[in-house]
Design a protein around this nucleic acid. Structure first.
Lengths: 164, 164
DNA sequence: ATGAAAATGAAATTCATTTTCATTTGCCGG
DNA sequence: CCGGCAAATGAAAATGAATTTCATTTTCAT
């Protein structure tokens, strides 16, 4: 099931695409890795996509552009993107590792429909405040947090009502 | 890595143990399943343990009490416990399915140390308030939420300081 | 007690993830 | 521009948690 993402973010401009590539290349150089066409293609595909992608889903999208790119390369590149902060894992109830891109995105959280899998982003500055407070209180060096709300979305509730 | 849990909850009294068993048996009856010694032993072991257990970890604990109980039965029983609300999955960075028991526990969340894996519970009624607000706003029938803060705990920070 | 339905547990299977390895490619020095 | 070496690639194999299968045993309503 594709985890459709309902959000407020625009497709990336050529500008921001280049900016994200810069970040990626700088990271590669820093850890002594090389710049390749495959990594380029994978980054571009990833940034263009709004959904929460599993490795396999990203692989399928990449393959449409260049059938010679293998699953393993997509898998490894996704890890690199996560390392440099361009991608981050989002835990979904289906248990598969899913990533969303984080470039130029403001802090947000997800409501996930346990029925159809759709996720709606929401924004709550309070959540970030709680992270800070708790970190201070427990002397934890808090670096990130995870907040998801699970439930049934309006569409699914209506559908169930019609059927039931 | 065992996910040690630092919390405020007491070991279950004989009283509350029986209460939890009641809930379990009622659930079994409702879905037409049977009461067995194995399920009993697994529930008891689960309730007595404070850590966040993977299926395998619970299996090892159960096996100490009764070596004849198989992994499969533990796996299936854990699912049943989750179904009737006595157990709930907690997503940890190690990616394995981990459960904590929910009987007589007040709503809480976790700070997870990404270094040593320890988790500290914290309580924040605001988080529950946010769940309600967001649910109302987006007409989502919110049933539960997930909130974890990741970071480095004080002990690990000190240890790293000594080494580095 | 009896028999139908469910439970058990060892083994097999599934499937996402990760590693291996032979080959190809990027890139730094001259 | 060239040589060489470290890294990248990708197919295939390995891993390992989660799940299913199935022959046997147990529960429980009658």
């Amino acid at each position: 099931m594709l985890q459709r993402r309902i959000d407020d973010h625009a497709p990336p401009s050529r500008e921001s695409m280049r900016e994200a590539q810069e970040i990626f290349y700088r990271h590669l150089k820093r850890v002594g890795l090389k710049h390749t066409d495959q990594r380029d293609a994978i980054l571009r595909t990833f940034l263009e996509t709004r959904d929460h992608l599993s490795t396999d889903e990203l692989f399928r999208l990449v393959r449409k552009k260049d059938a010679k790119i293998g699953f393993t390369t997509v898998y490894r590149t996704l890890k690199l993107l996560a390392e440099c902060g361009l991608a981050s894992a989002v835990p979904f109830p289906d248990g598969m590792a899913r990533y969303e891109h984080q470039f130029n995105r403001r802090s947000h959280h997800h409501m996930v429909c346990t029925d159809c899998g759709a996720s709606v982003e929401f924004f709550s500055p309070e959540v970030t405040k709680i992270e800070e407070e708790i970190g201070r209180k427990y002397r934890f060096d808090a670096t990130r947090h995870n907040f998801q709300i699970y439930g049934v979305c309006e569409d699914c509730r209506k559908r169930e009502h019609r059927i039931g």
